[in-house]
Design a protein around this nucleic acid. Structure first.
Lengths: 203, 203, 203, 203
DNA sequence: CCATAACCGAGACGGTACGTCGTGTCTTACT
DNA sequence: AGTAAGACACGACGTACCGTCTCGGTTATGG
């Protein structure tokens, strides 16, 4: 079976698409977002202008603003930390720290919010983002948790999915839903320790 | 600067504003959202049309779409459960269940997403929503937790704010960020029990 | 009987259309044409810009460029000469002189050419222009010719339509089809006398 | 400046231009015009598509749409009738009949209108068409008239140019300006006889 | 009790962005 | 060097909303 993966093989006829244009467009979106232009005020017209590119050149690559933003998010996505720390606890703290720092970046969280605000209307879009970006990070987290279970550091009677949510949920909730100001540096440790030890007093 | 709180002092002369128009406008927004029109596709023009109202009548009441949506959210907000259950555990489950059911309602979560996607650009707006709607629910949660601490059901060495996040965060994360399909009914119990008992194996 | 003519009675609800905008738009077209912008280069976008008016304001009044130009032509149309001269010959010369002067005006002939170039594709448009503008002028000509027949100055055995064409055709042909430079002043007299006397030597 | 007449001297190295492409392009224009596509709706893009040819191949041959149309008109131009009839009158009728039949052809008159509508903005273009296509036909007409003068059939005291206009103008006016429906077959005879005999009653 | 003033619906206003199409130029691989 | 294909920057197309503004008409009150 011929390997084909996601990369669609485009016809090789005609002038090839300019990689410089790709870069200019993605760059323009990031620049505009960093300029604090507000996600709703992002217009394809403005993006093309900022990129020094014709509108058609944008539409040739993406069918609309959301799809473009999806790719911008992917372009932004740095590989998950992948630090195998000295202990399960420290790995969990590391992962949460990554989330905290990410949520602080103005453009990252602006992008994330946009995607969220649209995914109800475009489930396929969200699905795609989820599959591409989030799944990998979840997987890292789950691996750490499974290691914890194997080493006896983590209870074995709970679903790993649920466990992951217990650690990550509080941080996401703070970073994306409630606050738009700096989160305290010790928050990651507090969450990890809180969930590890539980809210009930220990005998 | 004049006090401009919620109760704007209007001139008492002339025809008073029609309460029917208020209702028609709020109703139109809800109807459009339930129709799955997509939050970004909500237009003041369309809202006025659906409400059978002139555009000026809308703008006379709200300076823009966001302010209107904020009021719609407030109109939607039912008083927090306030059920003093038989135990702290059951109260926590009750509160999470309320969130779960709320997050399922298409229009509620659509609204919430919109607000989130805008709050970075309009912090005042978010602040206002937070103060009006969220604070009350947080307060209910914190009261339950403080009762738990008093009764010895909950550890006393953790910040109540943090504790609240540990319970609520995972549910919000699931309801608003990851899923757009039905959440399992037993999720609330699983989260509450997971956080209460902790992720580390006990004794 | 109430005078109503062609003017459609529009609903009187809402803000009435601005007569100033009408004038600004027509004026902008004339200014652009006089500026020698070339009829094909006339764009609705440019017209609106020149008029200081939104594009929608133009499209609210006319469905497209051709319909607008049709109205511009009508606005341009001065009443036919209507000079009852001292003799049939002099009246005919007067009518042809009017055509000659008209054909020289850059914007008039540019407009006329545009209309012509489109009337094959939009026969209704042409029909309307013909009925509104041309018919009146033809009628004036035919009246003069009929007077000539009655006074014995013009042959009575020829169709008046055909006669009219014999006088007017050569001038139109010169003004619109062949030349784009000044026509000699004596041309009108030459044509009238030539047609009156005939091309065959007179006994 | 190098002579740039019709016969451009091209380099003789490399692949020669495809005559098939020339034919395909001209053919495509004619096909589109006959399809009633409307002259203004003719696009270089559409022409290339219809011809199955790259756009560059069109632009390599003609600098723009007008120049292309000019050549199409030339390609269309059949040699003038050149029938030396039995009498001057019959020759004139023959020439006018040629015009009448030509004006009926949808594509011919569409082309002619296009050229007319552009010649004000591009006088050089018109000049070229005039010199190439019209002059020859005029010459034929003038020759007939001069023969008429020599044979005593036509007045000798009138400018031949003017005389020609008297015969041809009415037909052109009818064919191009007023009508877009069939012209009566007897029109040519009526015009010729009318101009020959004159509009004034003959003693 | 009626004038006044703010309300109401409708919809026009100058703008901006939408997504598409055509312009004339360019860049591929191929002939 | 020519060819088909098609990308490129640009700019016009006709539509939809934005938030403001005028219309004619409606409804409470206060003089």
């Amino acid at each position: 079976m011929t390997e084909e993966g996601t990369a669609v093989v485009r016809a090789v006829r005609g002038r090839p698409r300019s990689a410089a244009a790709d870069r200019a467009i993605i760059g323009a979106v990031l620049r505009l977002l960093e300029r604090g232009i507000g996600v709703g005020a992002l217009s394809m017209e403005g993006i093309a202008r900022e990129a020094g590119v014709g509108k058609a050149t944008v539409y040739r690559r993406w069918p609309g603003k959301d799809a473009l933003l999806l790719d911008v998010m992917r372009a932004l996505d740095e590989p998950p930390p992948e630090v195998r720390g000295r202990s399960v606890r420290e790995d969990l703290v590391e992962i949460l720290e990554g989330l905290r720092r990410k949520g602080l970046a103005k453009r990252d969280s602006a992008l994330l919010r946009t995607m969220m605000s649209h995914f109800h209307s475009h489930p396929r879009l969200w699905q795609e983002y989820h599959d591409t970006v989030i799944r990998a990070r979840r997987e890292t987290l789950h691996a750490v948790l499974r290691r914890g279970v194997a080493e006896g550091e983590i209870r074995s009677d709970l679903d790993v999915e649920l466990l992951g949510e217990l650690f990550v949920g509080p941080m996401l909730s703070r970073a994306l839903l409630h606050e738009w100001r700096e989160l305290p540096e010790e928050l990651s440790e507090q969450i990890v320790d809180g969930v590890l030890d539980g809210a009930r007093p220990r005998g």
